[in-house]
């Protein structure tokens, strides 16, 4: 006999999993089914309302405007979230630092923008700061302050930057200090540690709150209506004020829902990617 005896020549066939236990109609299962039934019934009722209230003339007249509003909402949210993310980096650094200038500055920024309503911030920026046209002209910034859309993006960016900085700073703090020390003992520099060790772990924590923040932005952007930017909500209100038909709010609800659903799926994909090292089946 040779060594070959110790070499496996065939894989052991995998056994079928044990049969799952029979499901009983327990109290919680009945309750769950009932509640699910209510949700399904509501969904059907909702679809029925939309189909039943279909009015070709209203659809032809107002749906294109409302779809145009969706595009404005998407632009507002994407621009604000991107600018907010860029702005949140120095604020995060300030929030994590012990420097006596940077730390209070960053704290003050986040304190102000998280502590006051977005509505008030937008109003103050557009009508308040906008009431000094001569100042802005002398600074060469009137072209910016003049446009309601730019003002709305600026106000939303500042607001979301404060929230995003808190999310990021909190996520970085949640990574144990040992990770920094371990990286240092391997001779990694601070920047490399942050990029290769800390941020990948922090992003797992930060991902869902980030998603939340964007969902809130999608809906919060309706505030742009007060400064004459007609986003999805603005166009919906416009159509409603012409038709007095609450149908249009149902359309808006569906469109907002679709936007959030797209975002949710993208976020699931992100999470799948970020947590690939935690899955047993991933090779």
């Amino acid at each position: 006999m040779s060594d070959a005896a110790f070499v496996a020549t065939a894989a052991i066939p995998s056994a079928a999993p044990p049969p799952s236990p029979r499901k009983h109609w327990t109290g919680s299962r009945i309750a769950g089914t009932l509640l699910m039934g209510i949700w399904i019934a509501l969904g059907i009722g909702f679809a029925f309302l939309i189909v039943g209230g279909y009015d070709a003339e209203k659809v032809a007249r107002y749906l294109p405007r409302i779809i145009g509003g969706v595009w404005v909402t998407v632009q507002l949210v994407v621009l604000s979230v991107v600018f907010g993310a860029i702005l949140s980096i120095p604020i995060t650094l300030g929030r994590l630092s012990y420097n006596w200038v940077a730390a209070p500055l960053a704290f003050g920024f986040s304190y102000f923008f998280r502590g006051t309503p977005l509505l008030a911030q937008t109003f103050l920026l557009y009508y308040g700061l906008g009431s000094f046209p001569d100042l802005w002209k002398s600074l060469g910034l009137w072209w910016f302050m003049r446009e309601a859309f730019y003002c709305a993006v600026l106000a939303f960016s500042l607001n979301t930057a404060a929230y995003q900085a808190e999310i990021l700073a909190g996520a970085i703090r949640s990574v144990p200090r040992g990770q920094w020390q371990a990286a240092a003992s391997l001779g990694l520099g601070r920047y490399a540690t942050l990029r290769k060790v800390i941020l990948p772990q922090a992003m797992i924590t930060a991902l869902r709150p980030y998603g939340n923040e964007i969902v809130l932005m999608i809906k919060g952007s309706a505030i742009a209506g007060i400064v004459t930017v007609f986003d999805l909500m603005g166009e919906t209100r416009y159509a409603y004020s012409k038709t007095y038909d609450f149908q249009v709010y149902l359309w808006a609800a569906v469109l907002y829902f679709l936007m959030v659903e797209v975002l949710r799926r993208v976020w699931d994909a992100f999470e799948f990617r970020l947590t690939r090292h935690l899955r047993r089946d991933a090779v």
Partner: peptide, 10 residues
């Protein structure tokens, strides 16, 4: 609001 914006030149 439109009064404010007429005043500031928007």
């Amino acid at each position: 609001e439109y009064k404010l914006d007429l005043e500031n030149g928007r």
